[in-house]
Design a protein around this nucleic acid. Structure first.
Lengths: 330, 330
DNA sequence: AAGTAGCATTCATGGAATAGAAGTGCTAAT
DNA sequence: ATTAGCACTTCTATTCCATGAATGCTACTT
């Protein structure tokens, strides 16, 4: 579809623009393409007709269109190896065995946002194949306890439980025993229904102050269902890019970043690292998103990197690939 | 020091400017102060000599100086009652007994940032008077366990432990027992030294594969010392203020928000809600910070609200006061 | 047929000039 | 002590250039 020279030209335009953030002129490329600027102008006109490049005004140089970037990413760009220094920084995190997986992912994405100057996002949650392995209830004051659940995949959460006044210690213990017996092995997202339909009847029968006690534990245990949590780092990075040079552009992006619905929507599934350029993503047409799904040991989610459209796609891809691999290994 | 009329004038200037974000002219106030604009100009000149107001250029209207805001906050502003609607929203959070204190604080500050359109910050950590009440180690795979500590104040944290290969179950159990026995009652910030100087010798003596095992547990337990964590919400809010109308101003603030050292520095101690106007704070001269320290049940920290200098100090103060009170009650 | 030189054309950019509006400070009168 | 009035200053927006950096196209060359 594109001649060899056109492809070469597109490559030069994209890479030049990524570097300089200025529309690329025919003259600037004539030396690199061993032909005159007039010839390049002709080729540029062809590329523009095909929709790969655009002008910012009638006599301006050329800028890659979304389609142009897309062609570049799919057909021209050579996947880059991660450089040793960057790899080392990330390796250190994943080789720290004490870190829980989700912490390792968060930290590594922080590093990535520093390395790239883009914005990193982790949408993570415990997956619903987490089953309760153990619950632990620890008294910390006369009428206050801490309820802790631990899942078979190693996910841990805790809540307060306020014990109603006129309840004896043995009743509390009895209640905990009943809950514990019935709840172990239950997937996280079914906990609240098991509490309601299996635990409650038993407590009703055996424990005296059942109503108040049941409510106290129910409110503590009922919201353990996997909820995605959002972690962003380097929000600022993206906005330091020279294309975001006026307040309204910056604010537009900031508002999108603030909108949890939009961010949650970044969620990706399927294998592989995918790129969404400009209008291809549903966040903002001035940015590109590169992201991938991960699952490991009961934690799942999406890691994403958001940069300007003129992002270094090869580097971003290499970084996400590396992290995805390491999540798999952990 | 200020005559009654001057005080009245300053009040009008501050409140007018807070509302309109435009320098206040003498003419605009003449109706409200039942005298002519010329008289007001004379009074303004006096206020300017005293340093309470400023001009943006030689023939402009007046804008409050930092000193002017300070005088307004200290001597003119009447402390506001929190309005019922806002109070209700916050009350709902603090009356949710299942929420751990730190979560309740974080959520309430999120609400506050929405109610004010300022940026809310919570710098929280478990305080060093947390003593370990219990440790729990749960196996989740052949060579992987989850270590959980619970403090007497109800603070919970967890880490991974990778069990070295050639180690028997009984040795692991023995090790956990030793650690558990020696570590209960130890304040969080002393855990790592107790591990090193009290636990290690015992393990050395009794457990066979001591070196590898000790290291595995040491790396899991050693970093439980109270570390402040930072929680910001509504970062964007502040930057939507009309005074931040160009990219460089927005970026300046964003950079400061990104600098963890600067944010951690917001830390406040002592009682009461304090206001730092413009140059009084060491974040940025274009903003004001209002903040207060909190301590309750082993959690301590600072909650802060950052707004433009022309913030509604009375409202901000009322909100922080209310939250501080509720933390006390919880 | 492909490449190129050359030129008219277009538009962005930045500076200078201008006019109007919004305020102030000051003087003189009340 | 207050105020009316006016000269003065600065901001803002607009217009008008001149310049420079590109392009597209035509006609010429290889």
């Amino acid at each position: 579809m594109l001649t060899g020279r056109q492809e070469k030209l597109l490559k030069l335009i994209v890479e030049n623009y990524i570097k300089t953030v200025k529309p690329v002129s025919s003259k600037a490329l004539s030396s690199k393409l061993k032909c005159s600027s007039a010839t390049i102008r002709n080729e540029m006109a062809a590329l523009e007709n095909l929709g790969f490049i655009e002008k910012t005004h009638i006599s301006s140089g050329r800028v890659p269109s979304d389609l142009g970037y897309r062609y570049y990413v799919d057909n021209i760009m050579v996947p880059r190896e991660l450089n040793g220094e960057d790899m080392l920084k990330l390796k250190q995190i994943f080789s720290n065995n004490a870190l829980v997986l989700s912490d390792a992912i968060n930290k590594s994405m922080e590093i990535v946002s520093e390395l790239t100057n883009y914005t990193a996002i982790v949408l993570g949650s415990s997956s619903s194949d987490n089953k309760i392995a153990k619950i632990e209830v620890v008294p910390i004051a006369d009428n206050k306890m801490i309820a802790i659940i631990i899942t078979d995949k190693g996910h841990v959460e805790n809540r307060n439980v306020s014990i109603p006044n006129n309840v004896s210690k043995s009743e509390v213990k009895q209640t905990i025993d009943i809950i514990s017996k019935l709840i172990v092995g239950v997937p996280l997202n079914e906990v609240s229904s098991v509490l309601e339909f299996e635990v409650k009847p038993v407590i009703d029968r055996y424990v005296k102050e059942h109503e108040a006690l049941y409510n106290a534990f129910y409110s503590a245990f009922s919201d353990f269902a996997p909820k995605p949590n959002i972690r962003m780092s380097g929000t600022t990075n993206l906005l330091m890019s020279p294309e975001f040079d006026d307040a309204s552009k910056i604010r537009k992006i900031l508002n999108k970043f603030d909108d949890k619905d939009i961010i949650r929507n970044i969620k990706e599934d399927g294998d592989g690292v995918k790129t969404y350029i400009g209008s291809e993503n549903n966040i903002d047409e001035d940015i590109s998103v590169i992201k991938t799904y991960f699952y490991k040991d009961g934690e799942e989610g999406t890691i994403a990197l958001i940069g300007p459209k003129r992002m270094e796609y090869d580097k971003a891809e290499a970084l996400l690939n590396y992290i995805k691999e390491n999540i798999g290994k952990e």
